[in-house]
């Protein structure tokens, strides 16, 4: 489960952490991805695993469009950039929920039969549900890919440079908007992957994002902003803490454990585990 939190968080880590833009509509991106997966399944009987690349591609476009239509202006705001980001993306979240409710109705949906759904592997009495296992593998692959991407490609370097100093970058002939739009697209595509995996074992409805969003923020911050590896580690920590708190505390208090560990870590290390900013 920890790796799944990691998978949800990785897209956020890119947007939130690397580009330093707050996205309060992250949970809603996830919701859209889950709906997309669901409808691909319902109309074309496409298994979520096969649908994943398609969903990721669709979310890539969606993310880029959101950046160009909304976030671009929020980042450019002369005053209160932080607040404008928080609230314009919050507005977007509300808007997306409304639109989802309008078109998809508020009914709960879920994919009843998929290739992986409900299958488990049992190793020495420990049950590993296959969807989660595949999700974990995808998460590791996504993190590795993103890590490579950021640190080894021109685009990754351009992204980081743009965040640090947009003015200087412009002098070298890099268009900030283009770089960030691609970054947003990529972040959203990763959320798309997460959504496709989630749809296998979770239900979908317009407000589904809310359950995951806070955990995703905590995961990213726990690992530290600006660090892909941090988000990965954060996901694992969150998963472990969740499993362990239920051993000592009643399950209804398990979020307290996760949040408590976050506070503990940032009080000791104000930049998270591996944060650079």
């Amino acid at each position: 489960m920890g790796l799944l939190y990691g998978l949800i968080a990785v897209g956020l880590a890119l947007i939130f952490g690397l580009m330093d833009v707050v996205n309060f509509a992250h949970g809603e991106f996830l919701m859209i991805a889950m709906y997309a997966t669901f409808f691909l399944f319902a109309f074309f009987a496409l298994d979520p695993l096969l649908a994943a690349p398609l969903v990721a591609a669709a979310l890539f476009i969606f993310g880029a469009v959101v950046y160009l239509l909304i976030v671009r202006f929020a980042v450019r705001a002369k005053a209160n950039t932080g607040m404008v980001q928080i609230f314009s993306t919050f507005g977007l979240a509300v808007l997306m929920r409304g639109v989802a409710q309008y078109f998809f109705t508020p009914d709960y949906r879920s994919i009843p039969h998929s290739y992986l759904g409900g299958k488990t592997i049992s190793i020495a009495g420990i049950y590993l549900p296959q969807p989660q296992l595949v999700g974990a593998l995808i998460a590791i692959a996504a993190f590795a890919g993103l890590y490579f991407f950021i640190h080894r490609t021109d685009f990754g370097r351009a992204l980081e440079a743009t965040r640090e100093d947009a003015g200087a970058v412009a002098l070298v002939g890099i268009d900030k908007n283009k770089v960030f739009a691609l970054g947003w697209g990529l972040g959203a595509a990763l959320v798309g992957l997460a959504g496709a995996v989630m749809a296998i074992f979770f239900y979908v409805f317009p407000d589904v994002g809310a359950s995951f969003a806070t955990i995703a923020y905590v995961t990213v911050a726990l690992g530290g902003f600006g660090s892909v590896f941090g988000a990965f580690a954060g996901g694992i920590v969150v998963g472990l803490v969740e499993a362990m708190t239920t051993l000592i505390l009643p399950p209804s208090l398990k979020t307290v454990g996760i949040y408590g560990v976050y506070l503990l870590i940032v009080f000791i290390r104000p930049r998270g585990l591996f944060g650079s900013i």
Binding site: M83, V84, L92, M96, R97, G98, Q101, P106
Partner: peptide, 24 residues
């Protein structure tokens, strides 16, 4: 109406105002 139109209007307005008037 149960169709979330109020959310659409509300969300849209927040986006519009926060982008158009960053200083409030």
């Amino acid at each position: 109406s149960g169709r979330g139109v109020d959310l659409i209007v509300y969300g849209g307005l927040i986006i519009a105002i926060s982008l158009a008037r960053p200083q409030g």
